[in-house]
Amino acid sequence: MSAPTRREEALEWALGQLGWTQWSSKTVSSDASFRSYYRIGSGADRFIIMDAPPEHEPVQPFLDIGARLRTAGLHAPRVLAADPARGFLLLEDLGSRPYHLVLDPANADELFDDALQALRVMQSRVETEGLPAYDAARLLQELALFPDWFLRCHWRIEPTDAELDDWDLLCALLIRWALDQAQVFCHRDYMPRNLMVSTPNPGIIDFQDAVLGPISYDPVCLFRDAFLSWPSERVDAWLESYRVRGLAAGLPLPESSDLWRRTCDLMGVQRHLKVIGIFARIRYRDRKPEYLDDVPRFFAYLDAAIARNPELAPLERLIAAWKGRRQLAQ
């Protein structure tokens, strides 16, 4: 008789918590991590099981950050039961309508208004004591994903010593812009895929990697997303509205709209380079090739930032040189 799978173990554990004898279940999603999610239901009741193998994805950060968000009045899923040693959580079901499947040009203002109001609460009221710092070492480690995984594994090129010198200077520039901002609670993946249309709106998920980080990081995540793109004029208007309303609410945002726009652009470049590297790592380490399909969107974001920020000219030259030598891996 074969050993039970983790899904079977997770379902057996959850049923023991709920005391159900009649039930149904289905896979909700698996993400870019090692976690899996299942919806379990009986009659009108529905819950989510998180299965996070503890050797890869300890659940304690999820429990800690979720409690901080709920204490601040934000809609993170309630935890009904937990077995951290096995990596199983039984969670409130926030529904099946993530922002990225619901957003359209007509409803975007309303939905993003709710998301930005939640973000203002997050950046002003959520307890940050004990959070890891989004410091220079962490920012640089993330930037290194681009040459280590995308250039070397996907484009199959080795940067020259001169190119690496230019790359180091670019990284220093991006890190300086990140650290010169106010540091606040930072979800670190505050994008439409991780926001659920719910009551109260939005439901917030995938928050376990939160840090104390740059105030522009989460607003940039929201609007320069892996799955949805918006006209730059509309993104600029949303970001400026966040600055104005955030200042009125007491958030430590720049008084200058131009400085805020440049801050968001350069913070975005750090994230875009990181995400491109992550998508390549998921492809070549984790054997999930579909994430690379969204890489052109991030190069488009980089092109837009380069076009209006002269200090990014070295990045334009580097990308052009590397693109000219690329040999795509199969």
Rank of each mutant, 00 (worst) to 15 (best):
S2N: 14
R6A: 03
W13M: 06
Q17E: 15
W20I: 03
W20R: 04
W20V: 05
S24D: 11
S25L: 06
K26H: 10
V28F: 10
S33E: 09
S36Q: 14
Y37S: 07
S42W: 09
G43F: 01
G43D: 13
R46A: 01
R46F: 02
I49L: 13
M50N: 05
M50Q: 11
A52H: 10
P53F: 09
P53D: 13
E57I: 09
E57L: 08
L63R: 07
G66N: 11
A72Y: 06
H75S: 05
A76W: 07
A76M: 08
L80K: 15
P84K: 09
P84E: 10
F88E: 10
L89F: 10
L90N: 10
L91H: 09
L94S: 06
G95P: 05
G95A: 02
R97Y: 09
R97F: 07
D104L: 03
D104G: 02
A106D: 15
E110H: 15
L111E: 02
A115E: 01
A115M: 02
R120Y: 04
V121E: 02
M122E: 01
M122C: 04
Q123V: 01
S124K: 08
G130K: 07
G130C: 01
L131Q: 11
L131E: 12
Y134H: 08
Y134Q: 04
D135Q: 08
Q141K: 04
E142D: 14
P147S: 08
C153Y: 14
H154G: 02
W155F: 06
A162T: 06
L164T: 00
D166T: 01
L170F: 02
L173V: 02
L173H: 10
I175A: 10
A178F: 02
D180F: 01
Q181E: 09
Q181S: 06
F185P: 00
F185Y: 13
C186A: 07
N194Y: 13
N194E: 15
M196V: 07
V197S: 12
P200V: 01
F207L: 03
Q208D: 12
L212S: 12
L212P: 00
P214E: 12
S216N: 06
S216L: 05
D218T: 05
P219Q: 08
C221Q: 14
C221K: 10
F223K: 07
R224V: 00
A226G: 13
F227S: 11
L228K: 15
L228Q: 14
W230L: 01
S232P: 12
E233T: 09
V235D: 11
A237K: 15
S241F: 13
R243T: 10
G246Y: 05
L247C: 09
L259P: 00
R261L: 00
R262Q: 14
R262N: 07
C264V: 03
D265L: 00
V269M: 12
R271D: 08
F279T: 06
R283W: 12
R287Q: 15
P289F: 10
E290W: 11
F298T: 04
A305K: 11
A307N: 07
A307S: 09
P310H: 07
A313S: 12
A313R: 14
P314H: 05
I319T: 11
W322F: 01
G324T: 02
G324W: 08
L328R: 11
